[in-house]
């Protein structure tokens, strides 16, 4: 069984061109933060299920930048429609990574539909995202990420992970998160106040 924190670190190590990463609600973005803050990271503190729509918006606004949505199984189940929207638009610079532990971990490990029945990759393919793959192990996960993120998408990678909690806790300051993210994307006003 793979581990979210470990996979997230492996993902971040692959990012060489200031790719934007949208971390979904809960443990997904906590582990993104724990993997080492980057100016191009965005952390969601609410709006469960919207990591993919937010990432899609960034990808449309900045077509030359690779954009990655990091989402959990419970979250993507809440907003499966966005997979169909993304398949229609075919943003070549968008990658979706689903960390699937089969539970609503942060609310007390209640099972999700992916635990025994729903298959995220099959759902994504059915929505029209033909380039959707289950990572078999850590090495395969890294192979799937050994590509340029600003082209060849949309791509979806899903990984079955263990039930270990996140290893960190994101700072809970939405305006700070948004401001720093925009600076990281070159769209912020923050520079006006830098010493």
């Amino acid at each position: 069984m793979m581990n979210r924190g470990d996979l997230t670190k492996r993902l971040v190590a692959k990012l060489k061109k200031d790719e934007a990463v949208i971390g979904g609600i809960g443990n997904t973005n906590f582990d993104l933060y724990a993997a080492g803050h980057r100016p191009q990271n965005f952390y969601m503190l609410g709006s469960m299920g919207l990591a993919c729509p937010i990432a899609l918006g960034v990808a449309l606004a900045q077509p030359e930048r690779g954009v990655i949505a990091l989402e959990g199984d419970g979250s993507i189940l809440m907003n499966l429609g966005v997979l169909a929207t993304i398949a229609q638009l075919k943003p070549r610079n968008l990658t979706i990574i689903i960390m699937d532990n089969g539970t609503y971990q942060i609310t007390g490990n209640q099972p999700t539909a992916t635990k025994d029945t729903a298959d995220i990759v099959a759902i994504a393919k059915g929505a029209g995202l033909s380039n959707s793959t289950w990572a078999r192990d850590e090495k395969h996960f890294e192979e799937l990420l050994s590509r340029r993120f600003d082209d060849g998408g949309p791509v979806l990678i899903a990984a079955k992970i263990d039930d270990k909690p996140a290893t960190g806790q994101t700072v809970r300051d939405p305006s700070l998160i948004r401001s720093r993210f925009m600076q990281g994307l070159g769209t912020g006003r923050g520079g006006a106040l830098d010493a």
């Binding site: 937010i54 918006g57 606004a61 429609g81 966005v82």
Partner: peptide
């Protein structure tokens, strides 16, 4: 962009704003 749900559309617009659109 035709969205499947209104909250999906709002998420998209939020991401686009942060990306400069």
């Amino acid at each position: 962009v035709s969205a499947t749900r209104e909250d999906e559309a709002v998420g998209m617009v939020a991401g686009a704003w942060m990306g400069g659109m």
